[in-house]
């Protein structure tokens, strides 16, 4: 057993090294004064100031944040409805179809989703004149659609693991469907809704392929700008941008872990008593 657990420690350790080595090297080199990545020219914040002076990147980032905010919000509303319907409505006609439509977007290759939505928008414009042209609106619709699926799955699994007695008690006490949902169910599934919103926000902020298909001229999102810059070659500002984004996420996750660890130690202490 001893040798086996040493083997496990080493292989798992290598796995974590594999996960973090490229990220750490990116962070370190974002502070490199020299433009050549191999040459260490000393510490510098030069690329950060260049990043904030780059209007193309800043505008694209603002557009991406706007799209991500609206899509995540829409996705949370629609996805919560879908998750609720799937786990609380019992069997109904078309349930299989809805559950299929909710899970399939999660694994669908992005090129297919992107192409099919673009062709739909073009066909709809030809038939009904809406949406006229492509841009922010079509990207928001596309992002809402695939984020909705993630939210629905998260909400559904939260509802499935939660017992229905609280809702039944509220019903027995005479709560109407609307107030039952908003006063009992919604607060209980709030953690799932918040994580669904955050996940949708990051997925939307990160999407390159689908946005490339459904956006119009002059509507480049941040990933589209990064992709074209990275393809062209040396891009020290991108290192700075990546570091900033990683820092934001890391702070959020560390905060969440700290919270969970506190809860875990609390539970252990309670168990000891």
């Amino acid at each position: 057993m001893q040798t086996k657990s040493r083997f496990l420690t080493v292989t798992a350790g290598l796995g974590y090294l594999f996960l973090y080595a490229p990220i750490f090297s990116l962070i370190i080199y974002s502070f490199n004064k020299s433009k050549l990545v191999t040459v260490w020219g000393g510490w510098s914040l030069k690329w950060y100031s260049e990043l904030f002076e780059n209007e193309q990147i800043i505008n694209a980032a603002l557009l991406s944040l706007k799209i991500a905010f609206i899509s995540a919000t829409l996705a949370v509303v629609l996805g919560t409805m879908a998750g609720f319907v799937l786990s609380r409505f019992g069997p109904f006609k078309g349930k299989m179809i809805l559950s299929g439509w909710v899970t399939a977007p999660l694994v669908m290759p992005e090129v297919i989703t992107g192409l099919s939505l673009l062709l739909l928008f073009v066909a709809m414009e030809g038939l009904f004149g809406w949406p006229s042209g492509r841009g922010t609106l079509t990207i928001i619709i596309a992002h809402t659609t695939f984020c909705l699926a993630y939210v629905a799955v998260i909400v559904q699994s939260r509802l499935a693991s939660m017992d229905e007695t609280l809702e039944e008690a509220a019903m027995d006490l005479g709560a109407k469907p609307g107030s039952l949902f908003f006063l009992v169910t919604l607060p209980l599934i709030m953690p799932a809704i918040i994580s669904g919103w955050l996940l949708s926000f990051t997925l939307s902020l990160d999407d390159l392929v689908i946005a490339s298909f459904v956006s119009g001229p002059g509507n480049s999102t941040l990933p589209m700008v990064i992709f074209s810059k990275v393809r062209l070659g040396v891009t020290p500002e991108v290192n700075a941008l990546a570091t900033l984004m990683i820092a934001v996420v890391a702070i959020g996750v560390i905060g969440a872990v700290y919270q969970m660890r506190r809860q875990a130690t609390l539970t252990v202490k309670l168990d000891d008593k």
């Binding site: 390159l208 990933p223 990275v230 991108v238 984004m245 996420v249 996750v253």
Partner: peptide, 11 residues
């Protein structure tokens, strides 16, 4: 949770 595109770029 960090950008997929930037992780590919890191490699």
């Amino acid at each position: 949770w960090t950008s997929f595109l930037l992780r590919v770029y890191a490699w």
